[in-house]
Amino acid sequence: MILFKRILSQLHRYVVWALVSALICGFVFFRVTDAKKEKKITIYARVPSVSCEELSLELEKNKPEGIKLINVHHFSYDLFGMDVFESGDVFIISKSDAELYRANLCEIAGRGENDLIIDGKVCGWLFYDAESRSCPASSYFDFTFYEGDGYANEDYYICFNKDSVHIGDINGSADDAAIQTAEHLLSLK
């Protein structure tokens, strides 16, 4: 009983230490695993399925100069949150999503006749062709559509965030690492 009381008398120290420990570990882990916006490329893919970890590792094999991390995030809910447009550089989205969020996308140089054109401007490069059901990097993406999963069998495009700091002359960014990464992605099998 006395031992229990003595332990209780130190309870405040145990609680404080638990909080301090969580804060310190969280801070250290975030600092080690993350990088500043200028040093990383963030790709958001609103597609049925994508192997985020494997694709990140593959893209990092040929990282653009000055880039430490390439993160791939899968989007599985309907609404684009504001943080996506603050943190994302590259989007892999359907044609209908691109038209819905056109205000957040930038005009880019065209690659071919299959480019996404919105309001007379090239806004995306074809990634998944709905007619032939094919896409590059097919070992990392699965475009199988199920009823009610929120995805439609339509064309998907690679688009760029107009506020990205990695799109070169388009918005005066210091580098065009996002463009390079997207081109690398399109070259994958």
Partner: peptide, 10 residues
């Protein structure tokens, strides 16, 4: 890491 740090500290 949090578990190790917390238990060690305790």
């Amino acid at each position: 890491a949090i578990a190790v740090c917390t238990v060690g500290g305790w």
